[in-house]
């Protein structure tokens, strides 16, 4: 399943979708950036409530397929611009992290 398809299936709002055809393989959930950095795997959908600009750097370095901002977390405009320029898919949802993880697992679990 691609990021674009995942966004449709889970009714996620795309804030930046520079690489919507990227396949999603499983997911990771976490808000402590160093923890995520050490454990998230390439190609996963990363669910988090963090919205600061370092989220984009962590997503770029771990090579996750997309970032899903949970519980209505809203980033500043510069974060969205940075995601767009670095090729990071950034999606948003009002749903809770748990609910999103269940959705990711059903749609793109491995």
């Amino acid at each position: 399943m691609t990021v674009r398809e995942l966004a449709q299936q889970l009714a996620l709002t795309p804030l930046a979708l520079p690489d919507g055809d990227r396949p999603v393989e499983g997911g990771y959930c976490g808000d402590l950036l160093s923890w995520v950095m050490g454990r998230a795997q390439s190609g996963q959908a990363w669910v988090t409530i963090m919205t600061n600009i370092n989220v984009v750097a962590v997503a770029a370095l771990t090579d996750v397929a997309c970032v899903i901002l949970a519980e209505g977390s809203a980033p500043e405009a510069d974060v969205i611009a940075r995601a767009e320029s670095q090729g990071i898919n950034l999606l948003q949802s009002e749903k809770a992290s748990y609910e999103l993880c269940v959705g990711v697992h059903r749609a793109a679990g491995v």
């Binding site: 402590l32 950036l33 989220v55």
Partner: peptide
């Protein structure tokens, strides 16, 4: 509050 300071920095550097 930015999501750092989890005490994982140096351990991650060693792990990788």
């Amino acid at each position: 509050s930015l999501g750092f300071g989890a005490g994982m920095g140096l351990p991650n550097m060693k792990r990788y």
